[in-house]
Nucleic acid binder design. Structure first.
Length: 213
DNA sequence: GAAGTCAACGTGCCTG
DNA sequence: CAGGCACGTTGACTTC
Protein backbone atom coordinates (compact mmCIF):
# COMPACT_ATOMS: atom_id res chain seq x y z
CA UNK A 1 0.00 0.00 0.00
CA UNK A 2 1.40 3.29 -1.09
CA UNK A 3 1.10 6.25 1.20
CA UNK A 4 0.38 9.35 -0.76
CA UNK A 5 0.88 11.59 2.24
CA UNK A 6 3.43 10.84 4.85
CA UNK A 7 2.61 13.38 7.52
CA UNK A 8 0.66 11.95 10.45
CA UNK A 9 -2.24 14.34 9.97
CA UNK A 10 -2.72 13.57 6.34
CA UNK A 11 -4.84 10.82 4.95
CA UNK A 12 -3.84 7.57 3.45
CA UNK A 13 -5.94 7.66 0.36
CA UNK A 14 -4.24 4.97 -1.57
CA UNK A 15 -6.25 1.92 -2.39
CA UNK A 16 -5.62 -1.58 -3.43
CA UNK A 17 -7.52 -3.16 -6.23
CA UNK A 18 -7.05 -6.66 -7.33
CA UNK A 19 -6.66 -7.49 -10.92
CA UNK A 20 -4.72 -4.43 -11.93
CA UNK A 21 -1.23 -4.52 -13.29
CA UNK A 22 0.94 -5.52 -10.42
CA UNK A 23 3.03 -3.66 -7.98
CA UNK A 24 2.90 -6.79 -5.91
CA UNK A 25 1.26 -10.14 -6.31
CA UNK A 26 0.34 -13.14 -4.27
CA UNK A 27 -1.86 -16.13 -4.02
CA UNK A 28 -5.42 -16.23 -2.77
CA UNK A 29 -6.64 -18.71 -0.22
CA UNK A 30 -8.27 -20.65 -3.02
CA UNK A 31 -4.99 -20.90 -4.87
CA UNK A 32 -5.96 -18.29 -7.45
CA UNK A 33 -3.15 -16.02 -8.50
CA UNK A 34 -3.84 -12.50 -7.46
CA UNK A 35 -2.42 -9.45 -9.07
CA UNK A 36 -2.85 -6.18 -7.32
CA UNK A 37 -1.92 -2.60 -7.77
CA UNK A 38 -2.25 0.44 -5.60
CA UNK A 39 -3.40 3.66 -7.14
CA UNK A 40 -4.79 7.05 -6.29
CA UNK A 41 -8.48 7.02 -5.49
CA UNK A 42 -9.08 9.84 -7.95
CA UNK A 43 -6.91 8.54 -10.68
CA UNK A 44 -9.02 7.22 -13.49
CA UNK A 45 -7.45 4.03 -14.71
CA UNK A 46 -6.60 3.73 -18.34
CA UNK A 47 -8.73 1.73 -20.72
CA UNK A 48 -6.38 -1.21 -20.55
CA UNK A 49 -6.55 -1.14 -16.78
CA UNK A 50 -10.31 -1.28 -16.98
CA UNK A 51 -10.18 -4.41 -19.05
CA UNK A 52 -8.73 -6.45 -16.21
CA UNK A 53 -11.41 -8.33 -14.38
CA UNK A 54 -10.41 -10.03 -11.16
CA UNK A 55 -12.19 -8.61 -8.17
CA UNK A 56 -11.76 -10.06 -4.75
CA UNK A 57 -12.64 -8.07 -1.66
CA UNK A 58 -11.21 -10.74 0.62
CA UNK A 59 -7.78 -9.54 -0.28
CA UNK A 60 -8.38 -6.28 1.51
CA UNK A 61 -5.88 -5.48 4.17
CA UNK A 62 -6.72 -5.13 7.83
CA UNK A 63 -7.47 -1.45 7.34
CA UNK A 64 -10.87 -0.78 5.93
CA UNK A 65 -9.43 1.13 3.06
CA UNK A 66 -11.25 -0.16 0.05
CA UNK A 67 -11.42 1.99 -3.04
CA UNK A 68 -12.67 1.56 -6.53
CA UNK A 69 -13.71 -1.86 -7.65
CA UNK A 70 -13.62 -2.42 -11.36
CA UNK A 71 -15.70 -4.97 -13.12
CA UNK A 72 -15.79 -5.36 -16.85
CA UNK A 73 -19.17 -5.82 -18.36
CA UNK A 74 -19.81 -8.48 -20.93
CA UNK A 75 -20.02 -6.26 -23.98
CA UNK A 76 -16.44 -5.13 -23.59
CA UNK A 77 -17.51 -1.57 -22.85
CA UNK A 78 -16.10 0.53 -20.06
CA UNK A 79 -16.48 -1.14 -16.70
CA UNK A 80 -18.64 0.16 -13.95
CA UNK A 81 -16.88 1.31 -10.83
CA UNK A 82 -17.80 1.67 -7.24
CA UNK A 83 -15.97 3.91 -4.88
CA UNK A 84 -15.91 3.33 -1.16
CA UNK A 85 -14.73 6.19 0.96
CA UNK A 86 -12.08 5.34 3.49
CA UNK A 87 -12.90 5.48 7.19
CA UNK A 88 -10.78 8.58 7.51
CA UNK A 89 -12.52 10.31 4.62
CA UNK A 90 -15.91 9.44 6.06
CA UNK A 91 -14.86 10.63 9.48
CA UNK A 92 -13.69 14.02 8.23
CA UNK A 93 -16.74 14.45 6.06
CA UNK A 94 -18.90 13.58 9.03
CA UNK A 95 -17.10 16.14 11.18
CA UNK A 96 -17.65 18.83 8.58
CA UNK A 97 -21.28 17.85 8.31
CA UNK A 98 -21.70 18.22 12.07
CA UNK A 99 -20.31 21.74 11.75
CA UNK A 100 -22.11 22.71 8.57
CA UNK A 101 -25.24 21.10 7.22
CA UNK A 102 -24.58 22.55 3.78
CA UNK A 103 -21.51 23.35 1.78
CA UNK A 104 -20.39 26.60 0.30
CA UNK A 105 -18.10 26.48 -2.74
CA UNK A 106 -15.04 27.40 -0.70
CA UNK A 107 -15.65 24.70 1.87
CA UNK A 108 -16.29 22.21 -0.88
CA UNK A 109 -12.99 22.97 -2.54
CA UNK A 110 -11.14 22.89 0.75
CA UNK A 111 -12.64 19.61 1.81
CA UNK A 112 -12.07 18.07 -1.57
CA UNK A 113 -8.43 19.11 -1.44
CA UNK A 114 -8.03 17.88 2.11
CA UNK A 115 -9.60 14.53 1.34
CA UNK A 116 -8.10 14.14 -2.11
CA UNK A 117 -11.57 13.81 -3.56
CA UNK A 118 -13.24 15.64 -6.38
CA UNK A 119 -15.45 18.57 -5.31
CA UNK A 120 -18.32 16.77 -6.99
CA UNK A 121 -17.75 13.77 -4.72
CA UNK A 122 -17.84 15.96 -1.65
CA UNK A 123 -21.00 17.59 -2.93
CA UNK A 124 -22.65 14.23 -3.56
CA UNK A 125 -21.61 12.98 -0.15
CA UNK A 126 -23.25 15.99 1.51
CA UNK A 127 -26.40 15.56 -0.52
CA UNK A 128 -26.65 11.92 0.44
CA UNK A 129 -25.79 12.70 4.05
CA UNK A 130 -28.54 15.29 4.25
CA UNK A 131 -30.96 12.77 2.83
CA UNK A 132 -29.93 10.20 5.44
CA UNK A 133 -30.21 12.83 8.15
CA UNK A 134 -33.68 13.69 7.01
CA UNK A 135 -34.73 10.06 7.10
CA UNK A 136 -33.35 9.79 10.62
CA UNK A 137 -35.16 12.94 11.70
CA UNK A 138 -38.37 11.62 10.20
CA UNK A 139 -37.96 8.39 12.13
CA UNK A 140 -37.40 10.29 15.37
CA UNK A 141 -40.39 12.49 14.64
CA UNK A 142 -42.46 9.41 13.88
CA UNK A 143 -41.54 7.83 17.21
CA UNK A 144 -42.39 11.04 19.04
CA UNK A 145 -45.74 11.42 17.31
CA UNK A 146 -46.46 7.75 17.89
CA UNK A 147 -45.90 8.34 21.59
CA UNK A 148 -48.23 11.35 21.49
CA UNK A 149 -50.84 9.33 19.68
CA UNK A 150 -50.68 6.52 22.21
CA UNK A 151 -50.90 8.90 25.13
CA UNK A 152 -53.83 10.76 23.57
CA UNK A 153 -55.59 7.50 22.79
CA UNK A 154 -55.20 6.47 26.39
CA UNK A 155 -56.50 9.82 27.57
CA UNK A 156 -59.36 9.57 25.15
CA UNK A 157 -60.30 6.13 26.46
CA UNK A 158 -60.26 7.43 30.03
CA UNK A 159 -62.54 10.27 29.04
CA UNK A 160 -64.92 7.86 27.35
CA UNK A 161 -65.02 5.83 30.53
CA UNK A 162 -65.75 8.93 32.54
CA UNK A 163 -68.57 9.84 30.22
CA UNK A 164 -69.97 6.36 30.69
CA UNK A 165 -69.65 6.70 34.46
CA UNK A 166 -71.38 10.04 34.43
CA UNK A 167 -74.15 8.67 32.26
CA UNK A 168 -74.58 5.78 34.63
CA UNK A 169 -74.74 8.17 37.56
CA UNK A 170 -77.39 10.21 35.80
CA UNK A 171 -79.40 7.17 34.83
CA UNK A 172 -79.20 5.94 38.41
CA UNK A 173 -80.54 9.16 39.87
CA UNK A 174 -83.30 9.46 37.28
CA UNK A 175 -84.39 5.90 38.05
CA UNK A 176 -84.67 6.79 41.71
CA UNK A 177 -86.95 9.67 40.97
CA UNK A 178 -88.74 7.47 38.47
CA UNK A 179 -88.00 9.94 35.69
CA UNK A 180 -87.53 8.01 32.48
CA UNK A 181 -87.05 11.02 30.31
CA UNK A 182 -83.48 11.61 29.11
CA UNK A 183 -82.28 14.90 30.48
CA UNK A 184 -78.93 16.33 29.61
CA UNK A 185 -76.67 16.75 32.58
CA UNK A 186 -76.66 20.39 33.64
CA UNK A 187 -73.43 21.71 32.22
CA UNK A 188 -73.10 24.10 35.13
CA UNK A 189 -72.51 21.10 37.35
CA UNK A 190 -69.74 19.70 35.21
CA UNK A 191 -66.32 21.04 36.05
CA UNK A 192 -62.81 20.17 35.11
CA UNK A 193 -60.26 19.70 37.80
CA UNK A 194 -57.23 21.77 36.84
CA UNK A 195 -55.00 19.33 38.69
CA UNK A 196 -55.90 16.06 37.06
CA UNK A 197 -57.54 17.57 33.94
CA UNK A 198 -60.60 15.38 34.34
CA UNK A 199 -64.21 16.36 34.10
CA UNK A 200 -66.07 15.74 37.28
CA UNK A 201 -69.21 16.68 39.11
CA UNK A 202 -67.71 16.62 42.56
CA UNK A 203 -64.95 19.13 42.76
CA UNK A 204 -64.55 21.49 45.65
CA UNK A 205 -63.81 25.16 45.28
CA UNK A 206 -60.18 24.85 46.29
CA UNK A 207 -59.53 22.28 43.55
CA UNK A 208 -57.62 20.25 46.04
CA UNK A 209 -60.24 17.72 46.91
CA UNK A 210 -61.18 16.54 43.53
CA UNK A 211 -62.54 13.02 43.72
CA UNK A 212 -60.24 12.08 40.94
CA UNK A 213 -57.07 13.00 42.77
C1' DG B 1 -30.40 -14.94 -2.77
C1' DA B 2 -32.95 -11.22 -0.50
C1' DA B 3 -32.41 -7.09 1.85
C1' DG B 4 -29.71 -3.28 3.20
C1' DT B 5 -26.16 0.30 2.35
C1' DC B 6 -24.07 3.85 -0.13
C1' DA B 7 -21.80 6.44 -3.98
C1' DA B 8 -23.34 8.38 -8.03
C1' DC B 9 -26.53 10.14 -11.31
C1' DG B 10 -30.81 12.45 -13.53
C1' DT B 11 -34.28 15.70 -13.06
C1' DG B 12 -36.94 19.46 -11.58
C1' DC B 13 -37.32 23.42 -8.70
C1' DC B 14 -35.58 27.55 -6.50
C1' DT B 15 -32.69 31.55 -5.91
C1' DG B 16 -29.49 35.30 -6.73
C1' DC C 1 -28.83 31.37 -16.61
C1' DA C 2 -25.73 29.03 -13.43
C1' DG C 3 -25.37 26.81 -9.23
C1' DG C 4 -27.25 24.39 -5.42
C1' DC C 5 -30.51 21.52 -3.48
C1' DA C 6 -34.17 17.81 -2.75
C1' DC C 7 -35.80 13.77 -4.36
C1' DG C 8 -35.97 9.52 -6.70
C1' DT C 9 -33.40 6.02 -8.74
C1' DT C 10 -29.57 2.95 -10.14
C1' DG C 11 -26.00 -0.21 -9.59
C1' DA C 12 -22.08 -2.10 -6.94
C1' DC C 13 -21.19 -4.08 -2.90
C1' DT C 14 -22.09 -6.09 1.90
C1' DT C 15 -24.56 -8.58 5.28
C1' DC C 16 -27.60 -11.90 6.91
Amino acid sequence: MKNLHKSPTSLDLSISVLGFASSSSGKQGDGRNVVRRDFDINEVPSEEQWTTTTVDRNEEESTTTIGIINITNGDGGPPTKKLRLTEEQSRLLEESFQQNYTLNPKMKEELAGKLALKPRQVEVWFQNRRARYKVKQTEIEYEYLKGCFESLTEQNNKLYKEVEELRAMRVGSSTKSSHRVYEPFPSSKLVMCPQCQRVTTTITTDHGNCVNS
